[in-house]
Amino acid sequence: MPSVPRVDRLKPIYTAAKALNFGWRFSDFLKIPAYNGISRYTNQLHRITVRFCKQSESSVGVRNFIENQLVEIGRKNPSVVIYAQPVRNSNPSIRAEYGNGRTLQINAKNMTQDEVSKDVHLLFSRSGEPVVKLESRQSALVPSIQGQWTPITWLPTEMNTEQLPAKQFSKHKSTATSATEYILQNPPK
């Protein structure tokens, strides 16, 4: 019998998934997949599969999209393979596969042609990373110019030779005029 038994509860799985922060990633920083775009931009979408039914009413939008726009999109994006799969009595769907191995699928049931076009454009413009709340909207490849602060930063060099504790290093510094300084500057008459 294991000392820590595996208990049938959703909470440990959920907690583990949050700790892994992958499939259920909630917040993250901006990322560059494989340094894409630093030297040359490469479309991260590798394959897109449009699945539809030739007779079904719910596939009308997808069929119209295939007739009117799919060939032109394929011509403009030669680095993406486009598959069209007619499957009888199936739900229309659009599946995209990205360079980092992830797959995204959109259910296109009862969509109009414009909606399908908008979703295909979304799939083309993504990098395959999950959509997350951003921890910060800015990120930089170059580290800070002046560096990270440490307790040793901006220490005066006189402390090297002075024997601590010394009065000059323990004095409180302030830009406001203290009462003592005020009286010294304005002696009473």
Binding site: H46, P78, S79
Partner: peptide, 20 residues
């Protein structure tokens, strides 16, 4: 998988890598 065509994949790969 059924949605796989090697010739199309090679064509797209050539464009992706910059040498079509």
């Amino acid at each position: 998988y059924p949605n796989w065509d090697y010739d199309s994949e090679l064509y797209a790969f050539g464009h992706r890598i910059g040498a079509p």
